Amino acid sequence: MNILILGYGKMGKIISQVAEERGHQIVAKINIENVADLDHLDTSKIDVAIEFSQPGSAVGNITWCMQHGVPVVVGTTGWMDDKDGVTNLCKQKDGSLFYTSNFSIGVNIFFKVNAFLSKLMNDQEAYKATLEEIHHTEKKDAPSGTAITLAEGLIKNNQRYSSWELQNDNTQQKEGTLPITSKRIDPAPGTHIVSYKSEIDDITINHTAHNRKGFALGAVLVAEWLPGKKGVLSMDDFLDF
């Protein structure tokens, strides 16, 4: 396959390495310094794009892919305020857009465990839910996209919570609101912790990523799968949970 890399930071470099190890060709590596090179690419020779840039660049990169008929796999988080517009553009262009907040197979299993536990805790009013995420200091968005996905899964399956809120030292927890704590620490693996706490005991589930290779491999596997498919797709489609 011929793959276009949009965003050539730490993740983009690992994705390129994994893709080449799997026998794919990288047609271009685009970042903020050479974004003008997009205008000179032969899109007929691009099978798929993998987008891991920054929140401020993601929508522009996705739009370019939709306008040029390039299927795109998106791992950048922090642009969800524009999700409806991007979804509509994908439909208008009959495009192929795959988005997930996390490409790790383990994390996506964790999403399902989180949803199941949330259902079990629905009637257990003695327990209060909290969510904590820890990342390195270079991560720009807070809470992380993975934390938001976990929060949405918990809220969907537990009628005692209707929204989430990012906490700081002065925030008072509101009834019906799931508090999220974000920490930025170096060095730190990506860690997500969901807890249900009561006066008697705590129930906690957590996922810790040891390195980025699992995310990169997941993105490349999805890129191999995506061409020929249409619409806005997610890990539920890819993993067929």
Rank of each mutant, 00 (worst) to 15 (best):
I200G: 13
V220M: 07
A151V: 13
E33D: 05
V73P: 03
A115K: 10
I193C: 11
A129L: 08
G69K: 10
T87S: 09
L117D: 01
D141E: 15
F116N: 15
T77W: 02
H136Y: 10
L217D: 07
L38N: 08
A223T: 03
K83A: 14
P143L: 03
V220G: 06
L217R: 10
P189E: 01
G145M: 02
G231Q: 09
V113M: 14
T137V: 10
Q25P: 00
A28C: 07
R184E: 03
G69R: 10
I180Y: 10
P227H: 02
G7H: 00
F110D: 01
L178P: 03
D201E: 15
G95Y: 01
T100N: 07
S163K: 12
E132Y: 01
G9R: 03
T43N: 10
A115N: 02
I26Q: 00
I134K: 12
P179C: 09
N211D: 15
G218M: 05
L89R: 00
T181C: 11
V113F: 13
K10V: 09
G190L: 10
I3V: 15
G7E: 02
T137D: 04
L166S: 15
G176T: 13
L166K: 14
T181G: 12
I105T: 12
K83V: 12
V113Y: 14
K140W: 11
P55V: 13
L226K: 06
N157Q: 08
M121T: 09
N170W: 12
T43K: 11
T77F: 06
T181K: 15
L97Q: 01
P55H: 13
P179N: 04
E133F: 04
Y196N: 05
N2C: 08
K230N: 12
L154S: 08
K229H: 12
L154N: 04
V74I: 06
K29I: 00
V220H: 05
K197Y: 01
G218C: 02
M11Q: 11
P179G: 04
D236Y: 07
A36F: 09
S182F: 11
T191Q: 13
K29S: 06
H135Y: 13
